[in-house]
Write a protein that binds this DNA or RNA. Sequence first.
DNA 1: CGGGAAGTTGATATAACTCAAGGTAGGTGG
DNA 2: CCACCTACCTTGAGTTATATCAACTTCCCG
Lengths: 211, 211
Amino acid sequence: MYAAALIKTDNPFHAPSAPGRARHEMSALSFFGAEAEVYAQGEESGSLYQIEYGAVRIYRLLADGRRQVVAFQLPGETFGFEADCCRSFFAEAMVNTALRIQECTLQNASPAVVAEALRSMIRAQEHLLVVGRQNAMERMAAFLVEMADRQEDTDQVELPMTRLDIADYLGMTIETASRSLSALKQQGFIRVPTLRSVEFVRFEGLRRLCR
Amino acid sequence: MYAAALIKTDNPFHAPSAPGRARHEMSALSFFGAEAEVYAQGEESGSLYQIEYGAVRIYRLLADGRRQVVAFQLPGETFGFEADCCRSFFAEAMVNTALRIQECTLQNASPAVVAEALRSMIRAQEHLLVVGRQNAMERMAAFLVEMADRQEDTDQVELPMTRLDIADYLGMTIETASRSLSALKQQGFIRVPTLRSVEFVRFEGLRRLCR
DNA sequence: CGGGAAGTTGATATAACTCAAGGTAGGTGG
DNA sequence: CCACCTACCTTGAGTTATATCAACTTCCCG
């Protein structure tokens, strides 16, 4: 059992203790409750984070509060590798999350870490095409396809994020996000058994929709 | 003088010979005329490109031809570092361009190359905020501020790209790009002495506009 | 000076935003 | 265990920013 002091959270909820599965590395787990901040823009960087379980949103804000989520990070993925000393973005847990934290500099970065960073860049640039050039239904389809591909399951996906998170990821309002999801449902592409899960009925149709 | 055979271009124009300035490395220069392709999506990757002079656009297409420019690369900058074997994007010279090409793998990548790749990622993610959450005038202002910051000149910038390139970078139509530029001009933020240059009148105002 | 490509401006159409009301699901306490 | 409460989500109606379509202008190059 981990001491409560280890749990870094700014909301009253306390994350559960470590899961029973085996540890892959010597680094300890850190726990974050839903909405807890992992790091903030402007903070000193230098650490690398790997998600053991849970999910994290990476985002940036405009002066008037408009938010763009630039990435969702899922179990097994690594984030937080930066060239400069200061964080360029905010990172927050979306649900109860366990992270392995390790120090990492440009010099000691392994090729695997570099490779994952480069793939994150490709994903960000592909996402730019979605946000810059696709309409609302195409964006929602692209989001669902991306989640399915990353979870390697084209039957259904679990969504650790709210509709507002999805909207801020896709560069639209929560109402438009909700309407797009309803339209995909109504047109027989998906079913939505619960608010946080989506079942695919015609996955390839969905993929064709956003090519 | 370089042989014409060295000039890789798919348009009739031939790039001029190498500039007089000193070479920093042993690698030879390759020349590309305006609109010449540097690499295409799906091609085998493995090379890294550094711009000696000129400018390159990195972009992706949707099936119906919609285009998103994900980055502009300027002199001194490096691009083309990828984790996987295949190119994820197209790269095209926008004007007469000279590139130093070198082989580069994940294993032999220098920390400097990794650092520049990470900065490209941050720039892509910051651009996501512009495209996802800012209106047309804010986007155009953000573009001009970015170009000024990268050229390290807040008095004026040279634009190696067309209005259509700018529009496809900012996720808007060419008409909206033109109108946004006109609005910034009309409101006294900038002057536009030629089609390919912009003078800043109130640079800090421009910066405030897109924060 | 002429021609063509690139850019600008105007008028109208439309997709997405905004504001508002209503619905649903999950959690809490009686 | 059920009912209520609240946060989250969905749907509707009207507005607006940007896209679209079209005409005109400017710049560059021969």
